[in-house]
């Protein structure tokens, strides 16, 4: 039997899960090993299997929703319930080890506000997947091309309590928006560890060969970009050089 959650946790691990009875035990076990003072929060939503039972039996705090919450909404719900100083986000279907998770906690401990998965998606072809392109473009227009395609969209990632206070928990349901907001708020955003989630992610249903989620993710990035342009102006804060626009009308 697992020891259960620490009463005064330093790290809160947030795990959204939807019918992950097959993987959830392993995910919780690894999460527990991340820090001695740890709480594990499993946001079980739209599940018809034993995910909630397993999580409860392992001493996790289980937030149970009969209906599916929607993509990434579990992150907001989990963050709302978390009491730790560091919030570590992962996923119920993601078999990552404690060793892969600790660097995210370490980065926040050393002063970062947002510790990202150093994962940019497949970039070998000349023309990448629209989602990969969107992530790179968002960072580029945020003036953070050094982050490549690493954003809050991918788990695992970690936030400081301070970052959560600045961002608020509800925005975490729209990771690109949260990401843009974090950078624009001047939070210290950095990559912490490479976890190849592309290989680890479960294969999902597709419509005509395209994951229907793709449209939403691309749209979310555009929305984030709109926010950037709203805050920083139509040129996103980039210089116009020596252009004398008045020369032509």
């Amino acid at each position: 039997m697992s020891p259960g959650n620490h009463p005064e946790p330093y790290v809160s691990v947030i795990i959204p899960a939807m019918n992950e009875a097959g993987t959830i035990a392993g995910v919780i076990a690894e999460a527990r090993k991340v820090h001695p003072r740890c709480e594990v929060i499993v946001v079980v939503n739209g599940s018809t299997d034993k995910t909630a039972d397993i999580a409860t039996a392992m001493g996790a705090k289980v937030l149970l929703f009969r209906q599916a919450l929607g993509h990434d909404v579990g992150r907001s719900v989990g963050a709302e319930a978390a009491i730790g100083e560091i919030l570590l986000f992962t996923d119920g279907d993601l078999p990552v080890t404690a060793a892969q998770l600790r660097p995210f906690v370490a980065a926040i401990s050393s002063g970062a506000d947002v510790a990202l998965n150093d994962y940019s998606g497949p970039v070998r072809s000349a023309r990448p997947h629209p989602v990969v392109l969107s992530k790179h473009a968002l960072n580029l227009l945020l003036g953070r091309s050094d982050l490549k395609g690493c954003t809050l969209t991918a788990v695992p990632h970690a936030l400081s309590r301070g970052a959560l206070d600045v961002l608020g928990s509800s925005i975490l349901s729209k990771p690109p928006l949260a990401h843009a907001q974090a950078v624009m708020a001047g939070l210290q955003v950095q990559t912490a560890q490479h976890v190849p989630v592309g290989k680890l992610n479960a294969v999902r249903r597709k419509r005509r060969g395209i994951d229907p989620l793709q449209g939403i993710v691309v749209q979310d990035h555009l929305e984030a970009l709109a926010r950037v342009l709203e805050h920083r102006g139509p040129r996103a804060g980039f210089s116009d050089g020596t252009r004398r626009r008045e020369m032509v009308r």
Binding site: G46, G70, V73, R205, D211, P212, I216
Partner: peptide, 10 residues
């Protein structure tokens, strides 16, 4: 919309 999509994918 997001809720329905998540359910569909799973």
């Amino acid at each position: 919309e997001r809720r329905r999509l998540a359910a569909w994918r799973n």
